[in-house]
Design a protein around this nucleic acid. Structure first.
Lengths: 204, 204
DNA sequence: CCCGCGATTGACTCGTCAGTCAATCGTCCC
DNA sequence: GGGACGATTGACTGACGAGTCAATCGCGGG
């Protein structure tokens, strides 16, 4: 028939999108599966038709987004026309814009998975490390090219860099950092400027 | 009598210490109150004699430690003989040593409260912000004294700094960062060097 | 030696949900 | 138009675990 009301793929998406909103609002642990079903305007049991468990819903949401992020990092890394610093700028920009575009989704990814390494993060440690490793590779290139100092480990620098981004998003999520459209671009600059330039005033 | 086996205060402590071990091992959400009682070698109900709820146990553990940390930061801030950078060094050193001395306790503070801002962190946002604000004040002094650049907000710099520390501890907790006795002092240097010095190689 | 009271015990209650499942619906194909 | 099969429904079950409470213990004072 020409007008299939909602295909299986659309239904699944509808449930995932509803879950993002519910997880963002109530948190994974404190929401019920029935909340997701209600938010999606769907019967309780249907969630289990599309997903094996509540946890699989979260896993799906996380991996979908995280894989995009890792792909972007890899893509940026491949560009030969950029300096290491410009690569870090591009990554920062992408992640901050991801938050700007869909705060709920990024909130779930960060708060419920990435920062909750004790519970779910543990399952996804490998995926998370893949991002760290890629960033570390970029920093290593920067060091090899004489662009960055070599007084610290690339691995540590990578954590500090990603940590600064995550910290900024967390700051927005919990209202510790001023929001507003300008803030996004300001913070992009702050992040790269802090990590690359440092706080110290260069000797005059 | 001269030899009271265990005073009320000691019992309470005993339960708190057991809870730290259990929370560190299993996580707050996935452990049962009976696990804490078992670990403490005490009957289930006794936990409720000393604490109103499972959550109050976690709150107590967190606040006890966090307040010490904030005090230390304030104390460091008051020292007129230190540069801003030296103050940041002292704070870093204290926090890293806290982890070295009692990893379980710091794991609980960070993983179950600080990084879990959605659940418990929310309750403690004020306490957490008190630390950020104090650090920001130190950085502001550094800026005013011409020691630090003023291209970024003190508030953001504070988050980046504390974020780097938290990221390092998280790295140890989940085995993403090499451990070992040397690593502690190395990472102390990395943290301050990254945040103050930045990655960029200064122009020759 | 006995009484009183806080410390201690652990079986029990009670609410909550994740996940199941048998029944119904609706569409598409023959 | 009928039947087959996947989509959809929501009442139900079973497990689990936080918090309660009445009973017991044991120290310290009288």
């Amino acid at each position: 028939m020409a007008t299939v009301r909602t295909s299986a793929a659309e239904r699944r998406r509808q449930i995932l999108d509803a879950a993002v909103r519910v997880f963002a609002r109530q948190g994974f642990h404190t929401c019920r599966v029935s909340d997701i079903a209600d938010e999606a305007g769907v019967a309780y049991g249907l969630v289990y038709h599309y997903f094996r468990s509540k946890e699989e819903v979260l896993d799906t949401i996380f991996l979908e987004r995280w894989n995009v992020m890792v792909s972007v990092i890899e893509e940026v890394d491949r560009r030969a026309d950029l300096t290491a610093r410009q690569k870090l700028e591009a990554i920062t920009s992408f992640i901050v814009d991801s938050y700007r575009h869909d705060p709920d989704l990024m909130k779930v990814v960060i708060v419920e998975v990435t920062r909750a390494a004790n519970t779910f993060g543990r399952t996804h440690l490998d995926a998370i490390n893949r991002a760290y490793d890629r960033i570390a590779a970029i920093i290593e290139q920067g060091m090899a090219a004489g662009e960055f100092r070599q007084t610290i480990t690339a691995q540590f620098a990578s954590m500090a860099f990603y940590g600064a981004i995550e910290q900024a998003l967390t700051g927005w999520i919990f209202g510790m950092l001023p929001a507003g459209e300008d803030a996004f671009d300001d913070v992009k600059r702050y992040i790269v400027d802090t990590i690359c330039g440092g706080l110290d005033r260069p000797p005059a």
